[in-house]
Nucleic acid binder design. Structure first.
Lengths: 183, 183
DNA sequence: TTGTTTTGTGCGTTATAATGTATATTTTTT
DNA sequence: AAAAAATATACATTATAACGCACAAAACAA
């Protein structure tokens, strides 16, 4: 799923419509072809930062007004359309549901680990924490030098300044949601 | 000349270096290939807004920190590398020196008009003005219902809420600088 | 309604973004 | 110094952004 270009699509169309401009008007004013503008609005193509620059410059709007989601927006993240951000065949998969965004102070991920596999994660800096809830299976977590067993439905908060290990020591898949935060 | 991607190039490299990360580290953290990252930093390719999104999200930095020029930067605009934003063969050419940017309250352009040609411009909204200085030749300007002759070296400020016409009624080329502002 | 104009979409082509692998370069270690 | 490791660039390939032109759809007028 393409987050940002969908924002651009919606925002651009909205701005154009409220200004009562045609695609051709915008093309005229920005130097971007009207077919390209149409494709962008329909989400059919992902503009380069340079074309985006032409648009914001020509329309005299801030960059962020195209790129950001209106904060009233409902955002639905469809797992099937979500490509694993990080994964290793038969080991683990890591999905970004709500990755870093300037306006938020936390991030939400989902991770699944195959039977008898584990994933080692480096520290994320001082004063960072994870809130982890297991959806299915049992997770063995090693953090801050200690080992915890988190069962289906259970949840844990732990600091992530140092290395931590997500291990699946069972025969079934384990899935869990991570809310990552800082400060 | 590609403004924004040069900003991205510089800013990304700077952030990466101050964090003492390798291209591979960044690739790892953002999901963008290290060759792509290298090309971006060297200004060899212009990323799509989506790859830019992966970078800012992975690095946990605001969009604007990549896109904007550090406001201490010296910016040199080389006319030969500047492609005319708007032009008509044998009629006129219009160059953007400092186009719209959120942090500025004015824009600077250069325009040249061929002998005995003119260019008609629509209004730019209420409380907009142009400060126009003629570099070579004599410009005949029609604005706000009146006609003015601006000679080489002379300058004029006029409102641009309505149509205005830049005319070259002479046998030689006319060139002038426009500073456009509002409010 | 029908013709006329305006506005948006579809499509073929070209330019180039994005990737993976191989090579070069730099830095570190011995 | 050379050898080893880490890091950055070059290159070939694929995927797709960007464009121009032709067509379709919608809005407007007669």
């Amino acid at each position: 799923m393409e987050y940002i270009s969908q924002n651009v699509a919606r925002n651009l169309k909205h701005i154009r419509k409220t200004r009562k401009m045609s695609l051709e008007d915008v093309a005229e004013q920005t130097g971007v072809s009207k077919s390209m503008l149409g494709q962008i609005e329909r989400g059919e193509s992902i503009p380069t930062v340079e074309t985006l620059g032409k648009i914001v410059s020509g329309l005299r709007i801030p960059f962020t007004s195209l790129v950001n989601a209106a904060n009233t927006d409902i955002i639905i993240v469809n797992k099937d359309e979500l490509l694993p951000f990080k994964s290793m065949e038969g080991e683990y998969e890591f999905y970004e549901y709500f990755p870093y965004e300037e306006s938020r102070t936390f991030e939400i991920y989902m991770m699944q680990i195959y039977p008898n596999r584990k994933n080692i994660s480096g520290g994320h800096g001082e004063n960072t924490f994870e809130y982890l809830t297991v959806i299915t299976g049992t997770l063995t977590l090693e953090a801050d030098g200690k080992i915890y067993e988190i069962k289906e439905g259970d949840s844990i908060r732990f600091p992530t300044h140092g290395d931590h290990i997500y291990a699946n020591n069972t025969g079934e898949m384990v899935k869990f949601i991570i809310t990552f935060t800082w400060n």
